[in-house]
Amino acid sequence: MKVALAEPVAALPRGAGLAYEPKFDGHRLLVFTLDGTAVLQARSGRIVTAAFPDLADAALALPDGTVLDGEVVVWTGGRIDFAAVQRRAAATVSRAALLARRLPASYAAFDLLAEGGRDLRSAPYERRRGRLVGLVGPLGPPLQPVPMTTDAELAATWYETLTATGVEGLVIKRLGGPYRPGARDWRKLRHTHVRDAAVVGFTGPADRPAALALVLPDDDTPVVSSPLPPALRSHAATTLAGRGTGAADGVAMAIGVGEVPYRGVVPGLVAEVERGTTRHSVVTVLRLRDDLINQV
């Protein structure tokens, strides 16, 4: 199932009929329940149920025929830890249970697409939101509805104060709007275009990587960064040394080129990157976040 998307904006939209939600930078995840089982689907369409056994187990509390849209996050020290989220998403079946205990996931649900097998995507957001809160709210962690307000001033306060927890902005929706898969009907406001991304691999030689393969928050499809500057290539070679053991190689999308093969590295390393306002903008690596290397 394709997911609804958001268009970046430079200022907070205001006006009647708008709803505001904090934007959690994790992995976009659809949750399906059917015949007493739960299936978790990433934004790319990949089934990731085995990587998140804790969320799959929690989802069994939902009635059959439920479909949720939301973000999976991992909290570390009171902040969203994107490196930990990526480590969870990339876990093998044999490691998934261990990581679920050490890095428990939370699911921030922001939409209800089906209830009792009934497709709700054509219903207005306001109605879907009410049903979402009624269904998920009583369950408690790790499944929770995201906060929402129709008060632009409160939304502005969230925008200014929630950055300390790793929430990097807001998503704005029309109360009367349907859920349109693949359409950019929603709006998103970020503090900056600088964000953390998970390093999943590199291109070029190991002793002087040419570019990094990265996974950005809210999208599990790897992308290739712009070429690394000379100093950063040396730093990357040192930091990535030894992190390729047992890691899977893959292909990532390079702007203007298409799919490019990369050599995989063990998840847990984060890069600070800058990206333009469109989905297909080049990603530039600013620095490697050595301070955030996840050792679990």
Rank of each mutant, 00 (worst) to 15 (best):
A6V: 08
T92E: 10
G70E: 02
T192M: 07
R287C: 11
E7S: 12
S122K: 13
S94P: 03
D291L: 13
L120Y: 04
E168W: 00
T92D: 08
L120S: 03
L103V: 00
G250K: 06
H27C: 08
L55P: 01
L113Y: 02
H191S: 11
P22T: 08
L99R: 04
R131H: 12
K2H: 12
A164M: 12
G250D: 10
I80K: 00
T76V: 13
P22I: 05
A59D: 09
I293E: 08
A59H: 13
G176N: 08
P142N: 12
A89F: 07
V257A: 09
P205K: 05
G17V: 05
R121G: 07
A164S: 09
R88M: 04
A231S: 13
L55N: 00
D291M: 13
K173H: 13
D218S: 06
T161F: 09
T33I: 04
T66A: 05
A91F: 02
D151I: 08
D207G: 04
A213K: 02
T76Y: 14
L62G: 05
A241K: 11
A197I: 03
L216G: 06
V273F: 08
A236Y: 03
H27G: 02
G264R: 04
V171W: 15
V167K: 01
R79S: 04
E126A: 10
R43K: 12
V85D: 01
V93D: 15
S94H: 15
E115Y: 08
T238M: 14
A211C: 13
G116D: 13
E21C: 11
E71G: 01
V273R: 00
A108Y: 01
I80R: 00
A84W: 01
R289P: 00
V224I: 04
G182E: 09
V136T: 15
Q86P: 00
L214M: 07
G256Y: 06
V3Y: 03
E7P: 03
L170R: 03
A61H: 09
E21D: 07
T192L: 13
A247E: 07
E7G: 05
T150E: 09
L5G: 07
G140I: 03
E272D: 11
L232G: 02
R187D: 12
A4N: 06
R287I: 04
L12A: 08
R263K: 13
F82V: 00
Y107D: 09
A252G: 14
P104V: 01
